[in-house]
Computed example of a mutant assay.
Amino acid sequence: MTHWLSGPQSLGKLRSMTRISTADGYIATLAIDHPENYLAMIDPDWRRVTSAEATRSKLELIAELAPHASAFLVDPLWSLSQGIVTGMIPASTGIITGIEALSYQPDGGFGTQTALREQWTVEKIKTLGADAVKMVVWWRPDAADADDNRRLVEGLVADCDRHQIPLVVEPLWYPAEGQDPTSEAARAERQETLVGAAGEFVGLGIDVLKSEFPGDLVDGSEAAAVDAARAIDAACAGTPWVMLSGSGTYDVFRRQLAIVAEAGACGFMAGRAIWTGSVGVPESERVEAVARCQSRLDECLAILRAHGQPWRQAPSLDEVAEGVTAGWHERYLES
Rank of each mutant, 00 (worst) to 15 (best):
F253C: 08
E154I: 00
V290A: 02
G248Q: 14
W241H: 13
A229W: 02
Y332R: 11
C293M: 12
V136A: 02
E177V: 12
L80I: 03
A40P: 00
V320E: 04
P90H: 06
R255D: 11
Q191G: 05
V137P: 04
A40K: 14
F253Q: 13
Q164G: 15
L152Q: 00
Q294V: 00
L301T: 09
L59C: 04
F201Q: 01
L297D: 04
L152D: 01
P76C: 07
E118R: 13
C160F: 09
P141M: 02
A197W: 05
G205D: 09
M41D: 09
A326R: 13
K134D: 01
I99H: 10
T249R: 12
V260A: 11
A69K: 03
Q309V: 06
S183F: 09
R272S: 13
G12F: 04
D43C: 13
T114N: 05
E53L: 00
D75T: 03
A144I: 08
L116G: 03
Q256G: 02
I232D: 04
Q119W: 07
G271V: 08
G267Y: 06
Q256K: 12
L30P: 08
G267E: 08
Y250T: 07
R312M: 15
I84K: 11
E177Y: 03
A273F: 04
N149P: 01
D233F: 00
E262G: 04
A265H: 07
E170N: 07
R255K: 14
I206L: 10
Q164P: 00
R296E: 01
D161H: 14
A229H: 02
V85M: 07
W46Y: 15
R254M: 10
D24P: 02
V49Y: 10
G94N: 11
R162W: 00
G111N: 08
D161E: 15
L61W: 03
G109N: 12
S81R: 15
R331E: 13
L167S: 08
E177R: 06
D216R: 11
W275I: 04
K124D: 13
P282H: 01
V324K: 01
G327R: 10
S284C: 06
M41S: 07
W139Q: 00
S6V: 02
E60T: 13
T50N: 08
K134G: 01
